[in-house]
């Protein structure tokens, strides 16, 4: 019951992050919103694990946290330079 209530709260917060991602106005606002969305996804997955009573879900959550971080950094690089790879020494 309380798990379901918490799940609804996470979904509402995800919706709010989505609103910000759509409104923008700058690309940084959007990246911030997506990053925040990812953190909430991690919380949602752990909640699912608690509902199912299985700790296996936590591995997925950990993995998602890893991917979320890397995705944020990659997105930001892409937004900044327009390319994902940079030659060595070019990075100021």
């Amino acid at each position: 019951m309380m798990l379901a209530a918490a799940g609804v709260a996470v979904l509402v917060a995800m919706g709010l992050a989505m609103v910000r991602a759509f409104l923008g106005p700058t690309v940084y606002d959007r990246i911030l919103a997506v990053n925040s969305f990812g953190t909430k996804t991690v919380l949602l997955i752990t909640l699912l694990g608690a509902m199912a009573g299985r700790a296996d879900y936590f591995d997925l959550a950990l993995l998602y946290a890893l991917i979320n971080f890397i995705a944020t950094i990659a997105l930001m690089r892409y937004a900044g330079s327009g390319e994902l790879s940079r030659e060595e020494g070019e990075d100021a």
Binding site: V12, A13, M14, L16, A17, L32, A33
Partner: peptide, 8 residues
């Protein structure tokens, strides 16, 4: 979570 979402 919800309050911080409102803040965002």
């Amino acid at each position: 979570l919800v309050v911080a979402g409102v803040g965002i």
